[in-house]
Design a protein around this nucleic acid. Structure first.
Lengths: 120, 120
DNA sequence: CGGGATCCTAGCTGATACTG
DNA sequence: CAGTATCAGCTAGGATCCCG
């Protein structure tokens, strides 16, 4: 359950950011939350390929790091909504930069996909 | 040796970027190459905590994806230099955004480090 | 110096079952 | 609905030893 902290976090700004956004799932979750609050089941669908275990774990870590807010509505059936905290919101430029680069890449590299080949 | 490709890469720009910058090591390598070409041993030192295996593997994948250039000087002892390709250079805004966010975070969150505790 | 080859473990996926 | 729990199977990654 423990996360591995880069030794340079706290020294290098890039390492610090990586530390908090440490997995691909977290970044994809951020991408989706940047467009507004989402329910657990919505994220499960929109973050294509994520397992329920990793979604839960990622959300817990993001919440612990105060990047994501978790709101529980005491209803039946229960409803839980996830949204970005101000700190999470402040990461928008980071995700945007990735989106911009990805767009440009897709536009200029026709059907380019990893050259290292092979996977499902 | 195969990399896992996110199903959404090719559709979602963010997923596309993650796919090519798929590990923390690659990002840290990029950070270091953005300041100029580096030798293998220099990277081994500057990318604190990376294992030789992961450094080699990351460099190979970055090279295959044409983000990094690998130049071998046929000398004795051998010398190999790594540098960014134009495509790699174009990722500068992405790394910069991460650096900026990290700097701000470090400045506003005194000695903040992951709350999930424990590692290494 | 710049890796390649091995071994071994932590962590992820996927499936299934259960709960407040 | 939004999880928790568990277990098998695979793989990413760390450690170590070796080589041209």
């Amino acid at each position: 359950m423990s996360r591995k902290t880069l030794e340079q976090a706290g020294i290098c700004p890039v390492a610090t950011t990586i530390n908090l956004l440490s997995s691909k799932w977290k970044i994809l979750i951020m991408r989706d939350l940047l467009t507004g609050k989402k329910r657990y089941s919505e994220l499960k669908t929109s973050v294509v390929g994520v397992s329920q275990k990793m979604l839960t774990q990622s959300l817990r870590e993001l919440t612990a790091d105060e990047i994501v807010d978790r709101t529980v509505y005491p209803e039946v059936p229960p409803r839980v909504e996830y949204s970005l905290t101000p700190l999470g919101e402040s990461m928008r430029p980071v995700i945007d930069a990735m989106a911009d680069w990805g767009s440009e890449y897709l536009a200029t590299h026709p059907q380019a996909m990893p050259k290292n080949e092979g996977d499902q």
